Amino acid sequence: MTEIEKMLAGLHYDPSEKTLTTLRTAARDLTEQYNRTSRHQSNERKQLLQQLFGTIGGEIKIEPNFHCDYGKNIHVGTNFYINFGCVILDCAEVRIGDNCFIGPQVGLYTACHPLDPTTRNTGIEFAKPITIGDNCWIGGHATINPGVIIGNNVVVASGAVVTKSFADNVVIGGNPAHIIKHLEIEEA
């Protein structure tokens, strides 16, 4: 297996491998260009995001500064919004549904490091995907950890640290995040 295949499969991989380094450099170049654009350059922003992301399902808006590892492993639906200062470490896939809003300074982290210090010091990493359903709102300074699945219609409170998965129709918050409230969702 290649290092990319290992990375996307959740296996230990070497992030210093040439192809991965090249892909990260390309993503950083695109995000640097994006972060230098103004709100008046919507067409340029759209083109840069189309080059950067794996899949864009429709209209999206991302406020600079935005940072990611690869970009190509990020897949978003339509009507998607990210506020200022978001970081997505997309060593594994990050899939986000339709009508999702991400507050300022949010982090979505798929990257993992071995617990054993000897192994960790070799630079070897592994990654676990993140999935966020439709109609989700993630409050400012929230952290979504590797391997988390968030269902549809979930609200993540500001500052929450999400370390496990949650089903549909809940408000979660705290560190570690827990269910604060179940939501009664009206059918449209």
Rank of each mutant, 00 (worst) to 15 (best):
N43L: 14
I96D: 10
T110M: 04
K164L: 00
T25C: 04
E3C: 05
G57L: 05
K164Q: 14
H67F: 04
E184W: 06
H75W: 05
T37W: 11
K128D: 01
S158K: 05
E59A: 12
G97F: 09
P15W: 02
I96E: 05
E17W: 09
V87G: 01
F80A: 09
L48H: 06
I130M: 08
K18Y: 02
I149H: 02
F101L: 14
K181S: 09
A142D: 07
I60A: 08
A26T: 09
D29I: 12
K18N: 04
T131A: 01
F80N: 12
A9Q: 13
I132R: 02
P64G: 13
A142K: 01
H75P: 06
T122K: 04
E125G: 08
E44W: 05
K181D: 03
G174M: 03
D14P: 00
E187K: 14
H178T: 14
K181M: 09
V94K: 10
A142E: 01
T2H: 12
Q47I: 14
P64N: 12
A157T: 05
D116F: 07
G174Q: 06
G159W: 00
P176A: 01
Y34L: 14
L183F: 03
Q105P: 03
A157S: 15
G57H: 10
H40K: 15
R45S: 11
F80I: 09
L11S: 12
A92F: 00
G57I: 11
